[in-house]
Amino acid sequence: MAVTGMQAELTLGPIPFHWSREEKRDFYARIADEAPVATVYLGEVICSKRAPFFETEIPETAERLERGGKRVVLSSLAEVMLTRERKATADLADMDGVEIEINNAAGLLARAGRPHRVGPFMNAYNEDAIAWLARGGATHVCLPAELPGEAIAVAARAAAALGVEVEYQVFGRAPLAVSARCYHARAHGRTKDNCQFVCEEDADGMPLATRDGRPFLRVNGIQTLSESYVCLVGEAGALAKAGVGHLRLMPQAVDMVGVARAFRDCLDGRKDPAEAEAELVGLCPGTRFSNGFYHGVAGYRKIAADAAAMADR
């Protein structure tokens, strides 16, 4: 079902990076009080070794966010292989009374048909997959970041007919790959088992540049992210119109309250997309924006608003 920009909700995805407990606590306190986001996803999605650092804080953080009027959803791990990962996934999927987002098929087995959300790592690329997932209890699906706008619109229509809510990432580094190997540890001559949490040094991922010096990718433990931030503030209205009712902001090491406000102002018509984007550029100094995936071209590219409008017609 089409929603207007004003009806579209902003969500805050799970923190992909290994921020310290204090940083996370402060971050969420500010989000709770100031960010115009409707939903916040909590939990470690990338690396099971990091999970213990914040696990005990989650109940209090969730309560804090709920007091700030946010809906809280707990996200599950993207990669599930080791015993502790299998257990964490099963335990989360078995929880009642909380909303959960599942990112691995192992979680679907444990959830056994009870209501849940489907995360971006689950590869819900099309209407048939969404229909299947809906039959298994999915109420809300976050589409893969590389899905182009044309397919998003078809998926959203199909989801609406099933009563399934649709979400798509509109801000932050694009998740490009995950691996069993930790590339952060590798960069420091270590292995995953003796990583000594070196990923903590890179709050916004470890930059990889090409050998001719062009910034290219970011390493985040087992995950590879884009160097550019996806920024679809110019496309947010079209996404809402296509039936994407939830627009996901991925936490980066920038002023995320400011980012959320810029998106909200744009959706509510208080700022036009160009103004909102200019504001976002100011909040993210030194970072290029991209929107290529949405427009069906190389993900790193930034299609200008005029060209984008032409392409959408």
Partner: peptide, 21 residues
């Protein structure tokens, strides 16, 4: 292959052609 298969968009990020799709 090094990345988890079916979860890699590196080629699409650079070329506009997707490994998965």
């Amino acid at each position: 292959g090094l990345m988890v298969e079916g979860r890699c968009s590196l080629t699409n990020y650079v070329t506009g052609q997707s490994t998965n799709m």
